[in-house]
């Protein structure tokens, strides 16, 4: 090598970061919420809320992706290379948008306002199990795909590794848990066990996220562009304070305290009251993680 320079990628900006965030969040909210409705708590309102919020997040995320395209009309050719992760992303995302609507219509029977819609399509209630399972599978796939999308970019060592899809998947399911805690906050007493279960799952996911982040850090040590990327991220106070501290460590600490305490003390009740704020921190942290992963994407050029 004659020389070497590190150059920040500029192909993808905040729109793609938001797409990755909303894709992961939407897929995770759908998969988790529908999974809860199917296998844990047969409450159609939870299924409906999750499937529809998943739909909204994915639709908005897709809109941002389309806005970022130079020539959106040529997206009709997306099917021509099944070896591309975008092919699988568009396929699974579109599939989720359809299956979640079909599933939601069936769930509408549990809502006094929306019941007429469910009654108009009685066949969909017979198929609710199928549309539910398909939505869970597609929602999970969309969540996982967002990480593989980046990791296939060979030129950027921070992305091109086995850890990034794992990190994005865990982070997305953590944001999904955070959103469900926010959405179900008003019913937390009625759904006490379910709510605590989601908080426990979220704490476990954040714990796993910390481990994967450390593994990524460890594998990047002194390895050219990846190490340069890590240093650029750790030198940015928004990443350190916004994501690492407020989006990760503070939520983990408060959730662990809330889970392990007896629930009777004033401190324990305070921790429980902080859960909505913690959820907002996790959601902001989820976006910041993806934004900074894009900002921290550096090439190592041999010149």
């Amino acid at each position: 090598m004659i020389a070497s320079s590190y150059v920040q990628q500029s192909a993808w900006g905040w729109q793609i970061a938001a797409y990755l965030f909303l894709g992961g969040l939407g897929g995770a909210v759908g998969a988790l919420g529908i999974g809860i409705e199917r296998f844990v708590n047969k409450d159609g309102r939870i299924g409906l809320l999750s499937a529809m919020w998943g739909f909204v997040f994915l639709a908005v995320g897709s809109g941002l992706l389309v806005l970022d395209l130079l020539n959106p009309f040529n997206a009709i050719f997306f099917w021509r290379n099944p070896g591309s992760w975008i092919f699988w992303g568009i396929l699974s995302l579109s599939g989720y948008l359809v299956s979640s609507v079909l599933y939601s219509v069936a769930c509408a029977k549990d809502s006094p306002f929306l019941r007429p819609i469910a009654d108009t399509f009685p066949k969909l209630q017979e198929w609710q199990n199928v549309t539910g399972i398909v939505s869970i599978a597609l929602g999970t796939f969309v969540t996982v795909y967002t990480g593989f999308l980046l990791s296939a970019a060979q030129g950027i060592p921070l992305w091109h590794n086995a850890g990034l899809p794992v990190l994005f998947t865990i982070s997305a399911f953590s944001t999904g848990c955070a959103f469900l805690m926010l959405a179900l906050w008003s019913r937390r007493h009625e759904l006490h066990n379910l709510f605590n279960g989601i908080a426990k799952l979220d704490a476990a996911l954040i714990g796993a996220e910390v481990v994967v982040l450390f593994a990524l850090y460890n594998s990047a040590i002194h390895s050219g562009a990846a190490w340069y990327s890590v240093n650029s991220l750790l030198g940015n106070w928004v990443f350190v304070v916004g994501f690492l501290a407020l989006g990760l460590i503070v939520p983990l600490a408060i959730e662990l305290f809330e889970i392990m305490s007896d629930g009777e003390s004033e401190a324990s009740r305070m921790a429980a009251r902080l859960l909505p704020l913690v959820s907002v921190f996790i959601l902001i942290g989820g976006y910041l993680l993806r934004r900074f992963m894009l900002l921290g994407g550096y090439y190592q050029f041999p010149w």
Binding site: W12, L70, N74, A75, F77, F78, G155, I156, F301
Partner: peptide, 14 residues
């Protein structure tokens, strides 16, 4: 080309 930029991100040579 729809201009998604994926190829730009993937190219190790800019």
């Amino acid at each position: 080309c729809m201009g998604c930029g994926y190829c730009i991100a993937a190219c190790p040579f800019g």
